[in-house]
């Protein structure tokens, strides 16, 4: 890059924002993909890749993605949890690429949980 102006400094800062959100905390939402042995077998990797792809495509900077181990619900894998800051986390079950993309758009971006894929509250005792 050539010589910078004061505005260029701000642009560089903006570009790096997502990388730094990751390191400093201060994110708006967190998506956790459960990747235990059965989760991976059931296609959790595809779900993870789809999440990352959505983030890149939409140029989202304040959402972090993590993975976690077995959630204890092997039959309902792949699963993911979406946590919007200051809201209760929502657990989604039996996901595939398409479903997670829809969740990303409606829940993460627009703020409306996708009831159809969510583990109904109270059903945690169902297994």
């Amino acid at each position: 890059m050539a010589r910078l102006t004061v505005d260029d400094l701000k642009k560089i800062k903006e570009e790096y924002k997502s990388t730094l959100t990751l390191r400093e905390g201060g994110s708006r939402a967190k998506i956790t993909v459960h990747m235990g042995t059965c989760g991976i077998a059931a296609g959790a990797r595809k779900v993870m890749e789809a999440v990352l792809d959505e983030i890149n495509k939409n140029n989202v900077k304040d959402v972090i993605v993590t993975n976690s181990g077995c959630a204890g619900l092997c039959s309902k894998e792949p699963m993911a949890t979406v946590e919007i800051i200051n809201e209760a986390p929502v657990k989604y079950v039996q996901l595939n690429e398409e479903k997670i993309r829809k969740i990303f758009k409606e829940h993460v971006m627009e703020g409306n949980a996708v009831q159809d894929y969510a583990l109904v509250v109270g059903s945690e005792t169902a297994y």
Binding site: Y16, S18, T19, L22, R23, M48, L52, N56, V60, T66
Partner: peptide
């Protein structure tokens, strides 16, 4: 630039 899900600060 790439969006990573994890940064390893070594």
């Amino acid at each position: 630039m790439e969006k990573y899900r994890t940064s390893v600060m070594l």
